[in-house]
Design a protein around this nucleic acid. Structure first.
Length: 775
DNA sequence: CTCTTTTAAGGTACC
DNA sequence: CTTAAAAGAG
């Protein structure tokens, strides 16, 4: 049967070109809201179905774990759908639920389980678990496959210790955070400590180099890697070992990279090596049964501060492609049709971004008509601004019953701005803050993980030091200094000292008893690592260490919360064991360091979303408020004098604008409280760069009735298409996927549709509000 | 060793 | 102004 039609009928011609791409290089320049995730998922399915590509040979790199998970799910659904048609002659959603589940799990076992989909870090951490013993370090350092992954705070602790304890430098002059950042930068450019010193022959440069060198030694001593190493070490291993590279080059015949504009030089090097097997002459590459397919948008590159380099995307055509002009090239396709936003929103976004110089020419083409006015509100101060947002939300919600709290997002440049907004909303609007504190960053979770890491990797001194006196057991700084001193003199891990009774008795003085007790606790669980499940171990440790008891005794609400979080960690462990058919502690820990949040478990609750503009990338909302659009705040004062940074701020603004589907509100305050004092503020230069005829500077009406046609009937730029919906129409909804119209409710401007979405259920949807693509 | 007071820093953040 | 981590007192 023609599988083709299933996939391709709903796509426009550029999307189709991307999805049908088989061998060789292809750059997909995908504007905001242009359906790039569909292009990616459909192409993967297409490779498997129409070109008989083995799923194990597909490597797809995503920007976040969440994106990876979503992609896997969407591919799984495609295959489950196909199984339903093939075996039952029915659409998946029409089958009984148990049948649906059965087909989905079949699709998982046959297909998605075998795909290599994940972030750079998770994919290459996985590869390192196989290969790290083959890595030859310049300094002769060694890691073993049960290495621990240090997060940012672990890494910073390490740096701080090196600065203050080892090198006896003034940590005010050499801020550990600055140093850690410098080391990260060096690693992301593939530099060794020596390179830093020679590149930067100043005192400062020499210090960075020295700290970097010591830092790397300590990581090795702890059998630990930081996030940067997860990319850097594979890249070095691939460069130094032909047979290892050859193996993985053979393995990954089809490489896909999402958010390509946010890759850095090392990530690029890694992808390049895998795709070319180290062949540097472009003309000698053999693309038979092999491809590299990257998707990105230089206009949405907003992470240069962490070494992302969008010129990598701009150079794709030279590196891999045919390098022909845009009209003739066969190695680049642009997705410019935007299915998300109203035409006036897109026009504003397009106009703004044209002020940037370094880009690929690209215009977002509207597929939807004009929407409500874009208001730009001048507030007296940040309090009044927050009130404005609150009132608008309440008003819009009241006037438009189809909107729920989840339809609104408030975007700001800096986290500090969230507070005032929260205060304004708290009383009568449910909201949640996206981003912010991550589950695995919480103190209690980090403590628990430190206990667990110690069991599988006793060399992990950072974790050991974290919990040796948590909860308080009377092991203080003086005792630790003694123990650490001994371990350094003998050149052995701290654990070896602590686990040896004789040494402890000699060194620890009156804390000896406590140290021995602690060591015995760890030892007793180390003995059980392979017999007990991860959750059982955690539960036991929390009790026997009295960690739980300690929290219970505090009796504060905060302590209660921490206990709740620990419970949640336990259930996450059990869930992980179920999903991965492996309940071992090692396997859980290998993933935990790379997992970011469990918070998306609570989705489904309808709440207004508050987040930074950075956190909003990839998301969309019917109504978007962009607040604090002031010179010095947005663009940030640190970016104003540097043209490249200013362009990045402008891209950030572009990202913010293009999050809005229906309506956009901009606002700025004339006076803002900053660190105590009130400072006058002036409107952002970006506001002047917007097409003024599309910006309404007056206050929105008190009861803004949303008359959908207000503009579309009067404007000559109208994009018509008030679609005549009929029962039986098939549609695609960005959130719910494919569905079928079962009822048409009302008529004219008040038409609502009842749509049955497989696996989701029936939803009543206003086609004026939701992004519905007819299929 | 632990509790209280002082001091410093406050741009964005994925893994 | 606020928050967190470091220094100082009991």
């Amino acid at each position: 049967m023609p599988v083709e039609t299933d996939f391709l009928a709903s796509l426009n011609s550029s999307q189709r070109q991307a999805v049908q791409h088989f061998c060789g290089p292809l750059l997909v320049v995908a504007g905001a809201g242009s359906g790039k995730t569909r292009a990616l998922t459909y192409r993967i399915a297409h490779l498997i179905l129409n070109h008989n590509v083995n799923p194990e040979t597909i490597l797809a790199v995503t920007f976040t774990n969440k994106a990876a998970k979503e992609m896997k799910e969407r591919i799984e659904l495609i295959f489950a759908q196909r199984l339903a048609q093939e075996k039952e002659g029915q659409r998946l959603e029409l089958l009984p639920e148990h049948q649906q589940l059965k087909l989905r799990s079949r699709a998982y076992k046959d297909i998605t389980k075998h795909l290599w989909i994940g972030t750079f870090h998770s994919l290459f951490a996985r590869i390192l678990r196989y290969e790290i013993n083959k890595y030859q370090d310049l300094k002769g350092y060694q890691w073993t496959k049960n290495f621990t992954i240090y997060d940012e705070s672990d890494a910073q602790n390490l740096v701080k210790n090196i600065v203050t304890k080892q090198l006896n430098l003034d940590d005010k002059k050499f801020n550990p955070r600055y140093l850690r950042y410098s080391i990260g930068n060096a690693k992301n450019q593939g530099l060794y400590p020596e390179d830093v010193a020679s590149q930067q022959p100043t005192y400062r440069g020499r210090v960075v180099s020295e700290v970097y060198q010591e830092y790397q030694l300590q990581l090795a001593a702890n059998n630990a890697l930081d996030f940067d190493d997860l990319i850097l070490i594979p890249a070095r291993l691939f460069s130094q070992n032909e047979s290892v590279l050859g193996y993985w080059h053979q393995q990954f015949r089809h490489i896909l990279v999402d958010e390509y504009q946010d890759t850095n030089r090392i990530q690029y090097q890694l992808i390049n090596l895998l795709a070319t097997n180290g062949e540097t002459d472009k003309n000698c590459l053999n693309w038979e049964n092999r491809s590299i397919f990257v998707v990105g948008d230089a206009d949405q590159s907003i992470y240069s501060f962490r070494m992302a380099d969008f010129t990598i995307l701009l150079e794709f055509q030279q590196d891999f492609g045919d390098g022909l002009p845009d009209d003739d090239t066969r190695t680049m396709v642009k997705l410019e049709e935007n299915y998300r936003s109203r035409e006036n929103i897109l026009e504003v976004a397009n106009t703004l971004i044209e002020n940037n110089s370094e880009r690929i020419d690209k215009v977002l083409k509207p597929t939807r008509g004009y929407g409500e006015d874009i208001y730009c509100y001048k507030a007296e101060n940040e309090i009044e601004e927050a009130q404005f947002v609150r009132n608008q939300i309440l008003n819009l919600k009241r006037e438009n019953p189809e909107l729920d709290w989840g339809s609104f997002a408030i975007l700001y440049r800096t986290n500090a701005q969230s507070r005032g907004l929260e205060e304004a909303l708290r009383a009568d609007i449910p909201y949640h803050i996206v981003g912010g504190l991550k589950f695995y960053d919480r103190k209690e979770i980090k403590d628990a993980l430190a206990y667990l890491r110690l069991l599988t990797n006793p060399n992990d001194t950072v974790s050991l030091l974290r919990i040796i006196n948590t909860p308080r057991r009377g092991i203080g700084q003086k005792t630790l200094d003694q123990l650490i001193g001994a371990s350094q003199e003998l050149g052995i891990p701290l654990w070896e000292i602590i686990s040896d009774e004789t040494s402890v008795n000699t060194l620890a003085g009156r804390a000896a008893k406590a140290v021995k007790q602690f060591a015995n606790l760890i030892k007793s669980y180390q003995a059980h690592v392979n017999q007990l499940t991860a959750a059982e171990i955690l539960d036991g440790i929390l009790s026997e260490s009295r960690y739980r008891e300690d929290l219970q005794n505090q009796g504060t609400e905060e302590a209660e919360n921490r206990l709740e979080n620990l419970k949640e960690l336990e259930s996450a462990m059990m869930q992980f064991a179920e999903e991965n058919e492996d309940s071992s502690l090692e396997s859980f820990l290998a993933n935990a360091a790379l997992a970011s949040d469990l918070d998306n478990l609570n989705e489904g609750e309808e709440k207004v979303s508050l987040m930074t503009l950075h956190a909003a990338k990839g998301l969309e909302f019917p109504i978007v408020f962009m607040v604090g659009v002031e010179q010095g705040l947005f663009p940030n004062h640190r970016a104003i004098d540097d043209p490249a940074s200013l362009e990045e701020e402008r891209r950030l603004c572009y990202v913010g604008i293009t999050r809005a589907q229906e309506q956009l509100f901009l606002s700025y305050a004339q006076e803002r409280r900053l660190w105590g004092s009130r400072e006058p503020a002036i409107p952002s230069q970006f506001l002047q760069e917007l097409p003024q005829d599309l910006i309404n500077h007056s206050s929105p009406p008190i009861n803004p009735r949303r008359q959908q046609k207000s503009h579309s009937t009067t404007s000559k730029k109208t994009n018509p298409s008030p679609q005549n919906w009929q029962v039986g129409d098939r549609v695609f909804h960005d959130t719910f996927g494919e569905g079928k119209v079962t009822h048409v409710l009302g008529s004219g401007n008040k038409t609502n549709l009842a749509i049955q979405f497989p696996g989701v259920g029936r939803k009543i949807i206003d086609p004026k509000i939701a992004t519905l693509q007819p299929l």
